[in-house]
Amino acid sequence: MSRFQVVSGKGGTGKTTVAAALALALAAEGKRTLLVEVEGRQGIAQLFESEALPYEERRIAVAPGGGEVHALAIDAERALLDYLQMFYKLGSAGRALKKLGAIDFATTIAPGVRDVLLTGKACEAVRRKDKKGRFVYDHVVMDAPPTGRITRFLNVNDEVAGLARIGPIHNQAQAVMRVLKSPETAVHLVTLLEEMPVQETADGIAELRAAELPVGRVIVNMVRPHLLDEEALLTVSGARRKEIAKTLTRAGVTGAAALVRPLVEQAAQHAQRVSLEREQRAVLAGLGLPTAELPLLGDGVDLSALHDLAAELRKQGAGEEVGS
């Protein structure tokens, strides 16, 4: 099972929710998971209804069976200062660099440095061991940048290794790349059963594969229940509408005659969506990846809903695959 699980997806598909649910799912049965966020949006804190996450790993949830989810919002600037301190004992020089604007430069302007720091910090957590030589975290789950940027984001270390051809940054970049391209890593893509997100998912997978990054599975989020199939709806025409009006009245609905038309209209829209969803499922099936499906939650995602989604992911075996 891949220890580093990266969750990406088109904007609006709910990748933060899926990442959090996956972290909970992987923490079941006494495991420890680290959930990391890299885009500075504090999405995890909002989801777990906690205050803003500091740059510090802290426990935010307990999973069934005594497992724990820890969370960390990675901040590029702090990560850079950490590095300077950790590897080069440059605490004071770090402060001097900051004064000069070098840290700003490195984390906002310099190409890729920011992304190197973010992926580097996550990989450090993946590889970190305690004194007894056991991994501190069984899994690290990253709420990653969206599909359109994910390959570039993960692959940035390759680029940086090319730019900084020698020296510690070069070595660091290469070490990160080794983790990212190994079966230790799986990149999951979250999508909806809609055309644009599915197209973007297909494109994203092609890019990841071209960059030799291990693709995990496609997670279809916000799947709506199919309450009525199209065949049934095809029968709703003409004379049947009269029967429906009668049946509505029998079932206790007042003013049934006026309701039939809008109800049937809604059903027709539903049928159209079901048929579009079927097309998109076929496209996803053609990608040849394992998938998982999560239901649409009527009332938004709160903590208990997050646990439900985690249980659903466990049931579907998400997170168990090794990168392909």
Partner: peptide
């Protein structure tokens, strides 16, 4: 295949 009750119940649930 579908009784009018099933259809109507489906329409109601969709609604």
């Amino acid at each position: 295949a579908y009784s009018v009750e099933q259809l109507t119940a489906g329409l109601l649930r969709l609604h």
